[in-house]
């Protein structure tokens, strides 16, 4: 019981200090943008002309008060979804986002049933 109390206190503390932290992170955006003229690099990793320009534009957009998603939408409208390293959740990409969790769930069920079947037997 003592452990549980300590545990809850610690967890509560830890979450409260974490949730207060919500700022727009420029570098995170850079890491999600593909440098189109490079080979498999994000603009964060690249120093090409294109990457430099895009970094300036991202900075401007942030200063204009655009949110992360608005920036991604603006850029994917111009360059296509190819520019985003994290695919948007939409009809086309639904399976990409959904299938891993489906497999996780299904696998969990299979393991559960195999184990339970044998518990009954013994």
């Amino acid at each position: 019981m003592k452990f549980k109390i300590i545990l809850t206190i610690l967890l509560v503390n830890f979450y409260s200090c974490v949730l207060s932290d919500e700022i727009i992170n420029e570098n995170k955006i850079h890491k999600n943008l593909r440098c189109l003229v490079c080979q498999g690099q994000s603009i964060s990793d690249s120093n090409s002309d294109f990457a430099i320009t895009l970094k300036i534009v991202v900075k401007d957009l942030i200063e204009q008060g655009k949110t992360e998603d608005e920036i991604y939408n603006f850029l994917s409208e111009k360059y296509g979804d190819w520019i985003l390293y994290k695919p948007k959740l939409n009809v086309v990409n639904f399976l990409l986002w959904f299938l891993p969790y489906f497999v996780l769930l299904l696998g969990g069920l299979i393991v559960f049933f195999i184990v339970r079947k044998n518990v009954k037997k013994t």
Partner: peptide
């Protein structure tokens, strides 16, 4: 789970391109 996620992330752009002619990137994020 790891295997399928990584496999899916690797193959998904290829499949989309081949079937729907739409190009996406799947990267670290």
């Amino acid at each position: 789970f790891y295997l399928l996620t990584v496999l899916l992330g690797t193959l998904y752009p290829i499949f989309l391109d081949a079937l729907l002619k739409s190009k996406i990137s799947v990267g670290p994020p």
